[in-house]
Amino acid sequence: MSGLRPFALHRPDTLDEAIDLLEQHGDEAMIYAGGTELLILLKAGLVRPRRLVDVKRLPRLREVAEAGDDLVIGATVAHRDVERSAAVRRRCPLVAEVARHVANVRVRNVGTVGGNLAFADPHSDLATLFLIFDATVELRGRSGARALALGDFIQGPYETARADGQILTAVRLHAWPAGTAGAYVKYGVYERPTLGVAAALFPAASGRPAELRLAAGCIGPRPQRLGRTEAAARGLDPRTIGERADELAALAAVEVDPMSDLHGSAEYKREMTRVFVRRALAVAAGRAQGAEAHARYAHTVVV
């Protein structure tokens, strides 16, 4: 496999330049950031771009910014930088913690958040987690900028709503209200996770009942917000939701849309959803009471 087929490397300094290059070269060009997914495809000969457009010099894409209640993570921010960012730790601490567990330390140093979302590998921790932060992605092209809900952006395995000539420039997360207890539980023995469950328990506030946010990812063609399960949990006190965990986990197992692959059959993944939603709820409910869960599960990372 070693060695890559030759390509020309463009390193634009501005977004307009980058977009112009993509428009000009069409199918011949692919966007390059960390390259942790792209270079693997190139080595396998599955894609053969004649040109790469390196977006790492574009200034805004490297930044993490706080904007009102939102956290905006630029597309070329590496996972390692998300982990260490003071702004991420302030606004969305669970995101910093999960970023620490993406892939391995080498991939975290080089791979980027934007690259992860734009590649849309079904086995993605961040894509799963971001769904419960009401994430939107910003796309820029010649016709301007548009924002798209992450759930609409990711359309299937390796397929997104990004059109040719568009660049994913940032992902925007909506910070949780104070007192929210969250958890991300990921399971697997391979390089990529077999299952990821993201759960958040929002406390009741004036005019708003307590709320569960729940997403399951890595098991199907794309990560999924489990709206029906969330609806069944609406109004339940986060501190006692553990009493209903079995029932909610069973609902989640019915709601997911798993896909068989080398990580396991669809039936297995459905059952694992039930098991891990229950565990994620237990962790989150414990945190809602100020208690940290110490249970350990085989091949599982509890964040």
């Binding site: 396998a44 079904p122 395995p157 068989s260 692959d261 080398l262």
Partner: peptide, 13 residues
């Protein structure tokens, strides 16, 4: 071939 390595689930879909 290598495309098959994307996984049965993706191909089936």
């Amino acid at each position: 071939g290598k495309l098959g390595g994307l996984g049965h689930g993706v191909i089936q879909r």
